[in-house]
Amino acid sequence: MATSHTGRAEHLITVNGEQRRVTLRPADTLLYILRDELGLTGAKPGCENGDCGACTVLVDGVPMKSCLLLAIEFATPEEPAAGAVPRHIETVESLDETEVQRQFLDHWAFQCGYCTSGFLMLAEGLRRQRPGASPGEVVDWLRSNICRCTSYAEIIQAVRGTLERERSAPPPV
């Protein structure tokens, strides 16, 4: 059966491990809802066109551009069907003293910092999905985002540093 949503209404969405109740229109982008309804302003608008990646968040662990997503796609019913797993959104606000943040600090991988949330989420997604990524793969992922301040070398080093740490970390017991 089709689910349908018309007009502005309240919905539940799962962000950073919390269920949040938000009022949204079906035409609202996820970026808009994160920022304007949920106060999670870490994700930034840079183009709202899919070009800059400043709005990147993780959707079930995969980096996606929140300006290209409709928030309504993430709405879960008040009483979800048995076994249904809500799609989980993670924003930069969920990162806390992680390796990728440390590496960005250590390598001076930002100046104005406006692109940083997007790059961090992209890098965090890469760490989780492809810890063994080759240098070429790292660059291919990072090409999704724009930084106007740094030379990219710093960002690439920070991401490689993150993956190296990930690979040398002892396996979880």
Binding site: R35, D36, L40, T41, G42, A43, K44, P45, T91, V92, E93, L95, D96, Q101, F104, L105, W108, F110, G113, Y114, T116, S117, L120
Partner: peptide
């Protein structure tokens, strides 16, 4: 010396103009 505001920039807590409405 690292930028004073650097820790905020890696946690999404650095606020820019359109973040504060």
């Amino acid at each position: 010396v690292a930028r004073k505001e650097a820790p905020n920039k890696v946690t999404g807590r650095a606020r820019y103009c359109a973040d504060i409405t």
